[in-house]
Amino acid sequence: MIRKVVILSMLLLILILFMLTIEDININTSARDYLFENGFRETGSNNLVTAIYLDYRLYDSIYEAGILLVTVSGIIFMSKKDDDVL
C-alpha cells in the first residue's frame, strides 16, 4: 500500500514537472534558423537530418556506428560455446 502511494506520488510529480516545463518553454531558435537558411547550400542535402548527422556532426555518428560494432562482437562472444573459446 505504502509502495503504491509512493509510486503514484512520484508519477504525479513527474506530470507536474512536465507541465511546468512545457508552460514556460522558451526555445532558442538560432541554430534552427541557421540550419534552415544555410544547410542546403553548405552540405547539398535536402534532408536536413542527413545534413546534420553526416556533415556537421559526423564525429557523433562514427561513434554510433562503433557502438553497433562493439554490440555485435559482444553478442558473438557470448553466444559461442565454451569449448570454442577455450
Partner: peptide, 20 residues
C-alpha cells in the same frame, strides 16, 4: 560524399543486424 557515406553506413548496419 553524402551518398558514399550513407552507402557504407547502410552496409555496416545491415551486416551487424543480420549477424545479431
Amino acid at each position: 560524399f553524402l551518398i558514399a557515406l550513407n552507402f557504407f553506413i547502410g552496409i555496416k548496419v545491415a551486416t551487424g543486424l543480420i549477424t545479431i
